[in-house]
Design a protein around this nucleic acid. Sequence first.
DNA 1: TCAAGGATGACAATTGGT
DNA 2: ACCAATTGTCATCCTTGA
Length: 590
Amino acid sequence: MVSDSDESADLSWLLNDDETQLSPCIQGRSNETVQDVASTSSLMPHFLAMGFAREMITKAIEESGDGNSESVLDLLLIYSSLDGTTSRNEDKAESDENRWEDDASSDFDEMDLELEMAGQDSISNKLQFLVKMGYDQDEVSSAIQRCGENASVFELADSIYAAQTEKEEEFGDCDPSSAHEQKDEDKYDPFLHDHKRQRFDDGASSTHRNDNQKHGHLKWAYGRPSTTIRRHEGGGDDDREAELFLPNSMVGFGLPMDPKRQLSRELPDVAQCPPFFYYENVALAPRGVWDTISRMLDDIPPEFVDSKYFSAACRKRGYIHNLPIANRFHLKPVPPQTILEAFPSNQAHWPEWDKRTKFNCLQTVVASSKLTEQIHAELKAHPNPPSPDVMKRVMKECRKWNLIWIGQNRVAPLEPHEVEFLLGFPRDHTRGISRTERYRSLGNSFNVDTVAYHLSVLKGIYPNGIRILSLFSGIGGAEVALHRLGIKMTAVLSVEKSLSNRNLLNSWWKETGQEGELQEVDDVRKVDDAILECFIRRHGGFDLVIGGSPCNNLTGSNRLHRVGLQGEHSSLFYHYYRILSRVRYLMGKH
DNA sequence: TCAAGGATGACAATTGGT
DNA sequence: ACCAATTGTCATCCTTGA
C-alpha cells in the first residue's frame, strides 16, 4: 500500500546515519563539477559504501581527471563490468591465464588495455565501452552529443535505445492509437512502445542523476525498516493490518490471499516496452548493491519477497521486473506451508521444544554427519527434555542447517528430493548428478511457486506461447515455473555455465514433451548480437528476459569473498544488463 | 566428499539521557 | 514519555583445503 502520494511526502525520516554520511557526495553530484581536493577525498567513503574496492576507486578518481563523482562512478562501473578483479592492474605484466577462460573475453581484455592507454579521456572511455557492448559508433557519438559529455554510460545507452525507439516510430511500426491505454495498468500492452521519453533529453544529466538518486530513496520507502514506517503511519488498529504490507515482512506487492494487495504501479516510461524482463538476486546483499542494480534496470525499485509465504522454507529475494502485477494467481496445488505439513512422517520424532514451522533459506551445502552425530550424542547423554542450555545449542544448529528429526534424538539434513519438493520442482528433477552438485544447484535456484506467482500474469497475455531468453538458467527454475503455469514455451534461449545443469534442463525439456525449441549457450559472455539476432530472425523476438545473476559475492554465507557487485561472479550482473539492452535495441530494429 | 571456516546487516531489546 | 545510542540475537542462493 505504498502509493505515490505517500512517497512524495517528506522522506527525511528515511535517512539513517549511513545515508546522511553520503549526502555530501550526493550534493556534490548536483554541482556541475567538483574539483576541489576535499570533495574528491569525500568520494572514497561514498564509493566504498557502494561496495567498490579501494584500489579501484583510487584508480577511477585518478583517471576521471576532474574528480567529478559521476565520471568516477562511470569508470568504476566500467571496471566492474570488465572484470571483478581489482588487483589486475598490478598484475598487468603477468600472464592472462587466470582472467578469462575463453575467447569471448579477449575483447574485454583489449578494452581494458585501451582504457589504460586512454588515460584521462573519459568520453573516449565511454564511447569505446559502448561500442564494445555492441552499440554502433555513430549512434554512441550522437548520444553523447544529445546527453552531453558528462552523461553516464547508462544515460547514453538509454538515449541510444530511445533514439532507436523514436526511429521505429517514424517508420510506423508502432500503433500510436494504443498509447492512450498505457495509463491503465490492468490493460498492460506488451507491444506498446513509449514515445514520451524526456528523462535525459535536456542534457542536464548531473542534476537528473541527483533527482534519480533521491527518487531512489523515495521508491525504496517500502524497503525500509518497519519500525520507522510504523511510526510514520500513526497509531490505531490500522497498524495491525498495515504490518502485512510492511517491507520487512517481504510480501512484495502483496500475497495471493490478501484482498488489499497492491494491484498497480507506475513504471518508468522506458520500462513500458517489450520485452518483459525479470531479474532476481538475494535480498540481503551488501549496502548499495540493490541501488546499483535498480539504477541500471530502469530505476525500478525491487520487489522484495520472502518465499516463506509460498512454501515451508524461507527465501528472501529481491525481484526487479516490468511485469504487470494485477491478476496474479497462485500455482496449484498450493504447496504445504509448514514443515510438518510438508513432512508429516517426521512428526513422530519431532520434540515439542522445537517450535520451528518454517525452514530457513535452503543453502548450497548441508550439515556434516559429524555435526548430526554430535547432536545425537549430546541429546542421548542428557535427560529428556534437555536443559535450556543444550536445547538452545541444538536449536541453533537445527536452524542454521535446516535439520529435521528422523528418529529419537536424531537429526539429519534434508534429502535432495526433499529440497526439490520445497522449492517447487518435480521429484528427482536434479537426479543424475552427484549429491553435492544437487544441493548446490538447488540452493542456487528459484523458488518456483514464488516466481510462478509473479509470472502468472503472462498466461493471459501469451495464450499461444512465449519466447524467452533465460540467463543464468541453472536447473531451469523459470522454465519449470512457466511450464507449471501452463504457459507454452515456443522457443527458449538458455544460458547456463554448468554442463550438468544444462543437461538437466535438456532432459527435463524432453521428458515433459516440450514442443518448442531449446537452444543452450554455456556463457553469458558469449551472448552477442549474432546469437540474439539469429534467434530474433528465427522466432520474431523475445517476450521475456529472465534470470538471476550469481549471488556468490553478495550473500552473507560467503565468508571469504563477499565483496559486492564487482566480485568475480556477481559482476556477471552487468551482462544481464548488457544483454537486455541489446535485446531491446535489436528488437526495435527488426 | 567432508569439515572447518566469520562478517555483515536487520531487527529487537535495552540502556541512558533529556 | 520520548529519542538516540548501544547491545544482543539471528539469518545468510558459500569457499577452500584436505
